[in-house]
Amino acid sequence: MGFSGRGLAVAVLFVINCAVLLARTLPETDVPPRFALYWLTFGIVAAAALIGVSSSGSGYLFAFFLAGHIGYRLEARPALVLALLCSLLCAGALYFRLGPGYHVLPWTVGLATGIPVLPGIVRRGRQQALRAVLEAAESAERAARAEARTAVLTERSRIARDVHDVLAHSLAGINMQLELADALLDTGDLEKVREANDKAHSLVKESLKQAQWTVHALREDALPLLESLTAMLASSGHHDALTVVGTEREVPAQVGQNLLRIAQEALTNAARHAPGGEVAVELAFADSSTELRIRNRPATRTAPVSAGSGMGLIGMRERVALLGGTITAGPVTEGPDQGGWQVEAVIPYE
């Protein structure tokens, strides 16, 4: 190296080669592919020129390191082309004796400067494989988190429906009886006040029983469908209202739970909107499905004014949809029950 002539050229080329190699530390995402191609091509020319003007044999190390980085930085095809160009330029500088250092190294050493491109390509392949594995793991983790969130939302919806079935219905009935008792106090009819109070007490007991059913359901304990439905009707005052069609069979816990909730919703609505009306429940075990039909006749006495939550029918539809079934609800337009209301749920077997 020097400050004039060939010494200055060696110093300048040495600085350029150092700068090209230092650029290897730049992240791949920060360097456009086209710019990387130009930068590495320029580095190859500078490395070959350094071999040509230098009288020391150590200059070829820049070409070796650069060729290895070419294999890592570029795709295989352009990397091999640039590595071949590097070998030809470095070998040519020594073979044609373009500088004073030709006698230090044989031209075959210059020809070998492109060989490190091969381990560079292998390293690039491993890095890409590792990156693909990490991306797949991150994608799987995101999918698992999304699935977990969906499961949480589904479970929250299920709990919300059960809470609505137990609390909203029971508390609405209890509140109705207590309001009735309060209104009857002004009339002095203690017998009717006592009757309303007793009815409120029975609703409290029924609420406790429903709460126990809900706890069992949330724990996914199987509830016997037929026995539970019979007990529910009896506690609602509808004795002998259940008709069983077909041969009784055991249904999955989730099916039994949701059919019981649908029956509870329908019976509560019947008591609220059609007080005094007879109720008929039919449970049919078909070859391919389980069907539940609840029908009530028109009210025989004036229904008290009460505002429902509006979530009853929505909850029933959600329950049936989760099981792949269908549900219909609407007024009865013909027959002896004309003017009443019917809810029919059909749950297919898997």
Rank of each mutant, 00 (worst) to 15 (best):
L178T: 12
L180C: 08
L180G: 13
A181E: 05
A183C: 04
A183N: 08
L184P: 08
L185H: 12
D186H: 14
T187C: 07
D189N: 13
L190I: 12
E191K: 05
E191R: 07
K192S: 12
R194Y: 08
E195W: 13
A196S: 04
K199Q: 12
A200P: 04
A200M: 05
H201C: 06
H201K: 07
H201T: 10
S202A: 11
S202W: 12
L203I: 04
V204I: 12
K205F: 14
E206W: 14
K209D: 12
Q210F: 09
A211G: 15
W213G: 14
W213C: 07
A217T: 05
A217I: 03
R219G: 15
R219M: 12
E220N: 13
D221F: 09
A222G: 08
L223K: 08
P224I: 02
P224H: 04
L225K: 04
E227I: 03
S228N: 06
T230I: 14
T230D: 15
A231T: 09
A231H: 09
M232V: 07
A234E: 06
S235E: 13
S235C: 06
S236R: 13
A241G: 01
L242V: 03
L242A: 08
T243E: 10
V244R: 13
G246Y: 08
G246T: 05
T247I: 14
E250Y: 03
E250I: 10
A253M: 15
V255Q: 15
V255I: 08
G256I: 02
G256S: 05
G256L: 03
G256Y: 03
Q257D: 08
Q257N: 10
N258A: 09
N258C: 11
N258Q: 11
A263D: 02
A263Q: 01
Q264G: 14
A266P: 01
L267W: 00
T268A: 04
A270Q: 00
A270F: 00
H273E: 07
A274S: 06
P275C: 02
P275S: 01
P275K: 02
P275D: 01
G276H: 03
G276P: 02
G277K: 02
E278A: 12
E278R: 04
A280C: 13
A280D: 09
V281E: 06
E282N: 13
E282K: 15
L283R: 09
F285W: 04
F285L: 05
D287N: 10
D287P: 08
S288Y: 11
S289L: 10
E291I: 15
R293N: 14
I294Y: 01
N296K: 01
N296P: 01
R297M: 00
R301W: 09
A303L: 03
A303Q: 03
P304S: 11
S306I: 05
S306E: 09
A307I: 13
M311G: 03
M311Q: 03
G312T: 00
G312Y: 00
I314K: 11
I314Q: 14
G315C: 02
G315A: 09
R317A: 06
